[in-house]
């Protein structure tokens, strides 16, 4: 397949760790220039600087911005900066991989007296779902989303599975997938596509913040028919592959990037793996 990423700018929202970071590296490897937005304290800033150097060592241009991508102020400052970087040329790929939300149960339990507040629920939806809409609006207005742009948003099995403390994020992912479908139809006349990528359970800094992650990491690794968890590079591979799609026909979907983890029934496949 022709490389449609070479010498094209891509935007990664949530670039400093996990899937965003892996995707930034994979895009640069394909010869794409990478603009990334991250939001980190001092240690993360240092790591982002190193990532920027690594990206540039591929011979591409790279700029990472330490800005709250979910805030109106951050976005309205970044969009003109991005237009300046690309010289007004549309982005080839946009990855929405913002993971920041409240991991608090809806109702108090004996262990946690805490219950989710309105502010926490609204913030989680705003960051992890609605920001995709606002970014798409502003990038389109700036000519940065146009014919050939491929937009991807990271979702999770949380849209169909319930985990303790994950209620707000589950709701955000459900809203995100709905936004993807709506945007796919509204972007069709512009020749741009948008899809949600549903990664399997992946060990990233964001996952490690989820209470009780140890159990479902173990269960997921055992239940995945491939006998392992998803790694950030699996997601990066899918983004690179789909970014090279010549048309915008593949759009409006939620695409599993999980080694068939979601559809595999219980632990039946891990036993087969073990007795092979």
């Amino acid at each position: 397949m022709r490389n449609r990423l070479r010498d094209r700018w891509c935007l990664v929202l949530g670039a400093s760790s996990g899937m965003g970071r892996a995707t930034a590296l994979a895009l640069a490897e394909q010869g794409a220039h990478v603009a990334g937005v991250h939001f980190d304290r001092a240690d993360g800033v240092q790591a982002a600087r190193e990532l920027e150097c690594t990206l540039r060592s591929q011979g591409v241009r790279a700029h990472l911005f330490n800005v709250n991508a979910a805030s109106d102020r951050g976005r309205t400052r970044l969009v003109p900066a991005l237009a300046e970087l690309t010289g007004g040329r549309p982005l080839r790929t946009v990855l929405h991989s913002l993971a920041f939300g409240s991991l608090v149960p809806f109702l108090p339990t004996d262990d946690t007296k805490q219950a989710l507040t309105r502010a926490q629920l609204e913030m989680t939806l705003d960051v992890m779902a609605h920001s995709l809409v606002y970014w798409t609006q502003d990038l389109l207005a700036a000519g940065l989303v146009a014919e050939g742009t491929r937009i991807f948003a990271m979702t999770s099995a949380g849209t169909s599975q319930v985990l303790p403390s994950y209620g707000a994020v589950s709701a955000a992912k459900a809203a995100l997938e709905s936004h993807v479908r709506q945007l796919a139809c509204e972007l069709a006349p512009h020749g741009a596509s948008v899809n949600a990528l549903r990664a399997g359970v992946t060990v990233t800094p964001s996952l490690l913040r989820i209470p009780g992650h140890e159990e479902f990491v173990g269960d997921s690794a055992a239940g995945n028919p491939h006998g392992r968890l998803t790694i950030p590079e699996d997601v990066a591979e899918a983004v690179v592959l789909l970014s090279n799609a010549p048309s915008s026909w593949l759009t409006g979907n939620t695409i599993g990037v999980d080694g068939a983890e979601l559809v595999a029934a219980g632990a039946t496949w891990s036993r087969r793996e073990a007795t092979r």
Binding site: F39, D40, R41, A42, D43, V45, N66, N68, A70, S71, F100, S102, A119, Q120, M123, V127
Partner: peptide, 23 residues
């Protein structure tokens, strides 16, 4: 002032950018 965890992170990032401190 209704500060949530995201605004708290924003405060930190800005303070670390404005002053020579790590929090």
């Amino acid at each position: 002032l209704g500060v949530d965890s995201l605004m708290a992170l924003e405060i930190t990032v800005r303070l670390e950018a404005e002053f020579p401190v790590k929090l």
